[in-house]
Design a protein around this nucleic acid. Structure first.
Length: 485
RNA sequence: CGGGAUGUAGCGCAGCCUGGCUAGCGCACCUGACUGGGGGUCAGGGGGUCGCAGGUUCAAAUCCUGUCAUCCCGACCA
């Protein structure tokens, strides 16, 4: 047994994080019943508990999209092959990962259909029909959908053949508006992920080699996971006029000229669920931030004597009070399990607060609350309980964010010395910030030497000065490097 | 897609090298009783085409061939 931070006497079936992070991750996914493997290669079943987390993430983002003037729509799963191939870089980028439908209704199709790997092509095609005038702009649409990419190596939530996401696709009158939208969404992503998932992210621009196939520029949010590797948690692309030209999306402008629209696209996926697991989880399992926790509080009644007549009614009463206060609560009144078993089980599932109530508590008119994040146990009076719980949940949310920020900062180093760069990547994995000349050759060589890639380059960073960490050319940007998922 | 490993009950494994009675163990599951504030105890019980398909053999979980899946390490990606 490797060291773990679990209290003595704990039995779980989870590999300790320090022993094998990857195994730990898979154990948590399975034991917390977030997802399971399906008979289809690379495809997972998202189980109810995992899906509930995804639904809460969806709601959090959806609310923000709508508040910024976006509308939801639904576009088809199938795209004629000829449409995908219209934008040259786009095809080249996605062709190797595409699944085709070649037969339908017992006959071979005249034109193969692509199962969408992303929907720029179909949105572009429809936008060409819908847009005539500058008065039709901007178009701000989003869809919640599944997409398919034939990945060679898959892992639940982080990379699966089919995955769920949202993809926003917008069209604008000017280049400035397109860029403004791209950055607005980037900021929205950062705010949503930090507020709701307690996942601090670094925002910035991708290097050319990492940008979206067909985009002018790609921005991303990058988070640091518990093992020091970075996860791309969301991307926002400025498509320029590339797709507008490929799909002939034109409008007549205020000055009567005919112009191509300026496009953007952006997405976050079920990968975020994987990020939540890897950023907050510990050796006892999952830790779910309260704002996206399917159950924020689990009530465990202590069965003693005639508890069914004494403890249980009180537990129901508290449950109802919490529901009325807008708290997501579950009362675990199963008789087949002991309290101790339930404690472990709900910790494994990451429920932020456990509420124990037994005969002793009823005598004292209080309950015992246990925090998942700090493991503190605190007696709290029944009087005013919902308010106290809401405050605690908020505190847990903030604590998780602060902890993740501290971890990220602790694992972020700076250097302009290449040897040191290599040692940093070897020693304690994390972000290494270093000046970069902007050449793809240097970027590739750094990756070959250290496995680290440029995650992104912060937007408002001052020009770094000096020379590239690897060559002698003047530095063009301050790049955030890390090994990534 | 290259390199490595593994598929035996829901999970974790033994058995395979050296073929041979009815395929085992721990946990989980079911029934009952006693229990219950950090994964309880006792008693009884259910669950397997040994990943799949061929082959060798009187006989295959075991040997051979193929295939599929999963995991790990690389090259590609939300």
């Amino acid at each position: 047994m490797a060291k773990s931070d679990k209290p003595e006497g704990f039995v779980t079936e989870i590999t300790p994080r320090s022993q094998d992070f990857s195994r730990w991750y898979l154990d948590v996914v399975r034991r917390a019943e977030l997802a399971d493997y399906s008979p289809v290669k690379g495809c997972m079943v998202i189980r109810p508990y995992g899906y509930a987390i995804w639904e809460l993430i969806q709601q959090a983002f959806d609310k923000r999209f709508k508040a910024t003037g976006h509308q939801n729509a639904y576009f088809p799963l199938f795209i004629p092959e000829s449409l995908l191939t219209k934008e040259a870089e786009h095809v080249e980028g996605f062709a190797p990962q595409v699944a085709y439908v070649t037969h339908g209704g017992g006959e071979q199709l005249e034109e193969k259909l692509v199962v969408r790997p992303t929907s720029e092509a179909i949105f572009g095609t429809m936008y060409a029909k819908w847009i005539q005038s500058w008065r039709d702009l901007p178009i701000l649409l989003n869809q919640w959908a599944n997409v398919v990419r034939w990945e060679k190596v898959t892992r639940p939530f982080l990379r699966t053949t089919e995955f769920l996401w949202q993809e926003g696709h917008t069209a604008h009158e000017t280049a400035e508006e397109g860029e403004a939208e791209t950055r607005k969404i980037l900021a929205l992503y950062k705010e949503a992920v930090e507020t709701e998932l307690a996942m601090p992210v670094v925002t910035g621009q991708k290097s050319d080699s990492e940008k979206f196939a067909g985009a002018l520029r790609t921005y991303s949010i990058e988070a640091l996971m518990g093992d020091g590797r970075a996860l791309q948690a969301g991307t926002s692309h400025n498509l320029g006029q590339n797709f507008a030209k490929a799909f002939d999306i034109t409008f007549q402008a205020r000055d009567k000229s005919v112009q191509h629209v300026w496009g953007t696209s952006w997405g976050v996926s079920t990968r975020l669920v994987g990020g939540v697991i890897m950023i907050h989880g510990d050796d006892s399992g999952l830790v779910v931030p309260p704002r996206i926790a399917p159950y924020q509080v689990v009530i465990v009644p202590i069965p003693r004597g005639n508890w069914q007549e004494t403890v249980l009614p009180k537990a129901h009463e508290i449950q109802q009070q919490l529901i009325d206060a807008g708290v997501r609560v579950m009362l675990d009144d199963r008789d087949a399990y002991t309290p101790g078993w339930k404690f472990s089980e709900w910790e494994l599932r990451g429920v932020p607060l456990r509420l124990e109530i037994g005969p002793k508590d009823i005598e004292k008119a209080s309950v015992l609350l246990a925090r998942r994040d700090t493991r503190e146990k605190l007696p709290v009076p029944m009087e005013g309980l919902p308010g106290a719980i809401r405050a605690l949940l908020e505190d847990i949310q903030q604590t998780l964010l602060a902890r993740a920020v501290a971890f990220r900062d602790d694992r972020t180093q700076r250097t302009s010395n290449y040897e040191e760069f290599g040692q940093m990547m070897e020693g304690r994995p994390g972000f290494v910030v270093a000046p970069w000349c902007g050449s793809a050759a240097c970027e590739a060589q750094i990756k070959a030497d250290t496995q680290a890639t440029i995650r992104n380059m912060p937007l408002d960073a001052e020009a770094p000065g000096g020379v590239c960490v690897r060559c002698d050319q003047p530095a063009q940007a301050e790049a955030w490097f890390a090994k990534s998922y």
